[in-house]
Design a protein around this nucleic acid. Structure first.
Lengths: 106, 106
DNA sequence: ACATTACGTTAGCTGTAACTTACCGTAAGT
DNA sequence: ACTTACGGTAAGTTACAGCTAACGTAATGT
């Protein structure tokens, strides 16, 4: 599976989005990420592994802690994927809306 | 669940991404979307319902056909969500990379 | 050396999302 | 009116994602 796909699938889960949004506040260790979330700490670890494989987060060891932060490369992959649709879909959409009056061909 | 979340969850599924990417070629009826996909036609209908609820596709009736097309509003919702991360994460990322030499404070 | 803290990993359970099959309504052609 | 094509919906099954509990490991403090 390509990277954009993994990133989209990763952010498709509610809990992972919660973790990811928590990381927006800055780099944090696992325990702090788990604090307040409705799932256990090991669950957060599993989610972080998925996010890491998707290129969405990066981690660095800091003593006994492991600090995670957002990796912009995963975000870039998604944005690139989205941009493939933008132009074409906008054209199609506008064309469809504007052709409300004429529907007599074919 | 907010709209951006629904859109992300919708595109998190492989089959739905396949349908969505097929729509990049332009508006198409359901049978044509199902053609070539590894799932049955009813399955495609179910996926289209999810995509529609997420604001990612729009449909119009055309005789006995029902033509689907990409709805740019869903794409816009995802893009807006992504943009919330862009600036902050880039700063954090660069700050972390650049502070490789100094790790003696705190 | 021992205890403790912080995480990752594994095994096993469970809810649910995705799928198929079957069915029904509707639009259009003959 | 009958038929055919198109597609949404319901019911039922199944594979897997996400969770917890338990365990293992590495680093730090005392």
């Amino acid at each position: 599976m390509a990277n954009q796909y993994r990133a989209l699938a990763a952010l498709g889960d509610n809990t992972r989005r919660g973790i990811f949004e928590k990381l927006r506040a800055g780099p944090q260790p696992v325990s702090e990420l788990a604090r307040g979330l409705p799932v256990s700490r090991p669950a957060v670890s599993q989610h972080l592994k998925v996010l890491k494989d998707a290129g969405l987060v990066a981690d660095r060891v800091e003593g006994t802690r492991r600090v995670y932060q957002i990796d912009p490369r995963g975000l870039g992959a998604i944005r690139a994927w989205l941009d493939q649709f933008w132009t074409a879909s906008l054209e199609n959409y506008r064309a469809a809306v504007e052709s409300d009056s004429r529907e007599n061909d074919e």
